[in-house]
Computed example of a mutant assay.
Amino acid sequence: MMLRSIAPVGHDGEFDDPPRGPALHRVEKPVRTAVLQAISSIQERYFEPITLAELASEVFLSRFHFSRMFADATGLTPGRFLTAVRLFEAKRLLLTTSLNVSDIVCSVGYSSVGTFTSRFSRAVGMTPTQYREPQVAELLVAISPTFQRLPPLRTLRAAGRSCASLQTGTGVLSMQLDLPRGSAPADTLVGLFADPVPQRGPVAFGGMAGMSSGELTIHGVPAGRWTAIAVAQHQPGAGGPRFSIGYQDVTVSPFGQSTARVGLRAPAPTDAPIAITLASHQSPFTQRMLAAQRPHLRAVA
């Protein structure tokens, strides 16, 4: 298949308004329809040089009105949503195909390999090449309307504190998880992230197998304000969703126990896709590179 070079999207200032909390269920039906139409367009054309003006014109709205409506309904600006889709697709191609990085860059809407590699490495904490290490796929958490994946909890426990961005903290967070009504027990993972659409691992996480609605406690949490993302993979053979997710802003104090509550639900079209790995960037690949460089560095010295 021929892959054509794609120019980057829009101007930075167009898409950089701060995100707002999602509230699609509270907006009028015509607004919901317009937002879903714009999301469908992003998902179908993410590899093209889409602009904010084009998205707004497709739903017959001004850029200002469209941006505010989109953020009200999804919690993100159109540009951040587009970036999330592009990075999700880039990660998918890195993990599931043998395409070289330059072809992947073109196929997800960037024209410069250098720019893509720099932005990917800064956001993800790994280079695109490092992201192809087997451990990355083994410890991948993926959330999208069409694809969901949660690694086995025993695999996560074995990973321990090797998470790519796990930090050391003194706080304790007690999360009350409300799973969807009528759903089966689930293997549940809660991660705390600095960004509502994270591209790298959490600052802290905890999990529980076969969990129903109840409490999950996470230790060693750094003090601060984080986005808690709860993911549950439900056992088969019962009603309710097979996979559910919940988001909640939480504040953790440096000492003592903080509390928060999050309700889980089935993934929605307005959820930006997320793919994060709990694998450390200190992968076997990185270690082999350092080992190969050391003799050369000693010789130069």
Rank of each mutant, 00 (worst) to 15 (best):
R4K: 13
S5T: 13
E14I: 01
P30I: 09
V31T: 11
A34C: 03
A34Q: 05
Q37V: 11
I39G: 00
S40Q: 14
I42Q: 08
Q43F: 09
E48G: 01
P49A: 07
A56S: 13
S57H: 10
V59K: 01
V59A: 00
R63L: 02
H65V: 14
F70M: 13
A73M: 05
T74F: 03
G75Q: 04
T77C: 07
G79H: 07
G79I: 01
V85A: 07
L87P: 00
L87Y: 10
T96H: 14
V101S: 03
S102R: 13
D103K: 15
V108M: 06
Y110H: 10
G125V: 13
Y131V: 04
Y131F: 15
R132G: 09
E133W: 06
P134I: 14
P134E: 09
A137E: 13
L139M: 08
P145E: 10
R149I: 05
R154F: 12
L156G: 01
S162D: 10
A164C: 12
L166R: 11
Q176I: 07
P180Y: 06
S183I: 07
A184Q: 09
T188K: 02
A194P: 01
D195R: 14
R200N: 07
G201V: 04
V203G: 08
M208V: 10
G210W: 10
G210L: 05
G214S: 08
H219I: 04
P222E: 06
G224C: 08
G224H: 04
A230N: 01
Q233E: 12
P236R: 07
G239V: 06
G240R: 02
P241Y: 03
P241F: 02
R242G: 14
I245F: 05
G246V: 02
Q248S: 14
T251P: 00
V252N: 02
S258K: 10
A260W: 05
A260T: 11
A260K: 01
P267H: 03
A272F: 12
I274T: 03
I276T: 13
I276E: 02
L278Q: 01
L278K: 05
S280N: 11
Q282C: 08
T286E: 14
R288D: 13
R288L: 11
R288K: 15
L297R: 15
R298F: 11
R298T: 14
